[in-house]
Design a protein around this nucleic acid. Structure first.
Length: 151
DNA sequence: GCCAACGTTGGC
DNA sequence: GCCAACGTTGGC
């Protein structure tokens, strides 16, 4: 089983939205690296931190699990969606998404707090200039953060 | 709102 | 295939 970190803007979709919906398609990813993680590397049962970005207090707010493997992102074909992609063909979809299932809310572990931990210095999401909305989390990093959450 | 960082696009 | 211009992300 692998571990991940998945960013969402809470004004678009927050951990409370997922707590209400229980499962949700992780649609709207329009970056090839992030798409490839979903398509090639994510498996049902993988765990991920749910991270709030572009907000007052960016950080980890919950834990989710991958509930369905990558399948075509329906929003790419929806002309009314902000994620519509006119260059994507129905018989050869460019964008896919996994589904995620709510597991738990956590206390807010802020970006600032994550940065203060030496054990997390190499975490992908903390690297300078990182903009990927989905990043791998090493098992040791996952364990460390789980420990922080329980404190 | 600013801007650093980085991905994508398109002319050549 | 290079690379300048442009668009987006996301912290601050």
């Amino acid at each position: 089983m692998r571990y991940w970190l998945m960013k969402s803007e809470p004004s678009d979709y927050s951990i409370d939205d997922l707590a209400r919906d229980k499962t949700a398609p992780w649609y709207g990813v329009r970056n090839y690296q992030a798409r490839n993680f979903m398509r090639d590397d994510m498996r049902v049962g993988d765990r991920a931190f749910f991270y709030h970005s572009s907000c007052d207090e960016p950080g980890i707010v919950g834990i989710v699990e991958v509930a369905a493997p990558a399948h075509p992102d329906v929003t790419q074909f929806d002309r009314k969606s902000k994620y519509y992609d006119s260059a994507s063909a129905r018989d050869n979809p460019r964008w896919v998404n996994v589904d995620v299932r709510f597991m738990a809310k956590t206390r807010l572990v802020t970006l600032d707090e994550l940065r203060r931990h030496k054990a997390l210095a190499k975490m992908r999401v903390l690297q300078r200039g990182n903009r990927l909305s989905i990043t791998p989390v090493e098992p040791a990093e996952w364990k460390h953060i789980m420990g922080m959450i329980q404190d």
